[in-house]
Design a protein around this nucleic acid. Structure first.
Lengths: 258, 258
DNA sequence: TAGTGGTCTAGACCACCGT
DNA sequence: CGGTGGTCTAGACCACTAT
């Protein structure tokens, strides 16, 4: 837990990793304050400006929050967003109870599409995890994740009915900062209908996304389908969208289902 | 165009505004480099670190881009994102031609909902702009914007068939950095069907959003509907979603454990 | 080689917060 | 009041880019 000043890795970056590690290990606790800038600069033998660079970046990534005159605090579970959480939250806020059922959990060779999407080498394997999301026992969505096994060895050991974000953070030290998403509407396939226990015709909200770490590593791919009559997606969108649009497909056809 | 060091407004912030203004006026041109950090520090009588703070923030907001050893550049087409542009751009990239038809343009008193959503005072007025989006002459979406008139006096003078982002940037100096969105699926109303020239049953992708400036000002509200068979929404989502949940209308409890 | 942005230092003053 | 983060300075060395 020291800064190697001879390392080519910048001091502020090393400090960031040290702080993140201390949060993960519980040494710095959620909602509690961490040492002040001046203390940290003494502890690690850095100038205050260098410490500030580390803290500000972590604050920007949502891991810390800073308050003038008070101190720097570990964000309260940072995670749990999007798909699942804005969903879980919603359910809870309405006094309903969210649930999860594991539909499938296997390890497979990445196919060509997945290899390209996640920058894998041919032959790499991925976990394929398919989960059913419920609210008060009613199925509202199917989430299928493809996760390169090299980023999460022995994932079997953990309870994947909860948040993948949380597992990546707590068990593997990866913090997911953003994702590229494509949102559309698809017709439910017969199989989806059965899984979601739909009788009539309910269009499904389709969200496919690639999850990234702050460093830009493509962590995993997820394909989600939600009953549009029971679900809304709430998000904050920032301006980087341009880059996505450049590669994007303006698809006039179907978003196929499997 | 000078820094007032006695002002309570931080020097780096003043510098940001000056640079943004110069970009707007065309003094600093898109894709071209701006003066180096060292030059700017001499020009404005600031230390290099202070100049860096301004440049880095602008880079983070997407207005500038920086390259080691080369210089600092004004981002090319900063704007044009999301709804509209990821749509217009996309259409263009597919060799299709996007179009817009103005369906309605009026000035009205903000109703209660809009007043709350946009933090207005009672009695404030908004422009109500309803536009039809087309691709190769085919209607694919309806976009309805509610814009407080106090942020865009004499909006009538400008061509609103193009990007509102661009008008806000070029005519009023507001740069939109993010938006809070709610995405869902709705059935087309008879009127929407007529407007979109839909015969059968096509579910519509519904996107409502509040657009913000970097400073957090709520600029306007937009309600969009797209034919889900012709349109996909591509976005990059960052982790700030938590904040939405915190301030948002839908949260009840803490984001605590699973 | 000269210029750029990236990192880093060791100071400083300020506004803000809790006691 | 003492401590905190926010701002700011005037230097410095580095790796990178272009010529």
């Amino acid at each position: 837990m020291f800064i190697d000043k001879k390392s080519p890795i910048p001091a502020y970056f090393q400090l960031k990793e040290i702080i993140v590690e201390k949060i993960r290990k519980g040494e710095y606790q959620q909602g509690k304050s961490i040492p002040s800038e001046r203390e940290l600069s003494v502890i690690f033998g850095l100038s205050r400006m260098t410490v500030r660079q580390a803290l500000n970046q972590l604050a920007h990534e949502g891991i810390l929050s800073r308050e003038k005159g008070r101190g720097t605090f570990v964000s309260r579970l940072i995670l749990e967003q999007r798909n699942l959480m804005s969903f879980t939250e919603l359910a809870r806020s309405k006094g309903m109870s969210p649930g999860t059922r594991i539909l499938q959990k296997s390890m497979v060779r990445a196919d060509k599409e997945m290899t390209e999407l996640l920058d894998l080498k041919s032959g790499d394997t991925v976990y394929r995890i398919k989960r059913l999301r419920l609210v008060d026992g009613v199925p509202v969505g199917i989430e299928e994740a493809f996760i390169p096994t090299k980023y999460c060895r022995e994932l079997e050991k953990y309870d994947i009915s909860a948040s993948l974000y949380r597992i990546f953070w707590e068990k593997y030290g990866y913090y997911i900062t953003h994702g590229d998403n494509i949102i559309g509407v698809v017709k439910a396939s017969p199989r989806d209908k059965k899984t979601l226990d739909i009788a009539g015709e309910v269009p499904l909200l389709s969200i496919t996304s690639i999850k990234y770490t702050a460093a830009g590593l493509k962590l995993y791919y997820e394909k989600s389908l939600y009953r549009s009559d029971l679900y809304e997606y709430q998000i904050r969108v920032f301006s980087d969208v341009v880059n996505i649009a450049e590669n994007g497909k303006f698809n006039a056809g179907e978003v196929e289902d499997d």
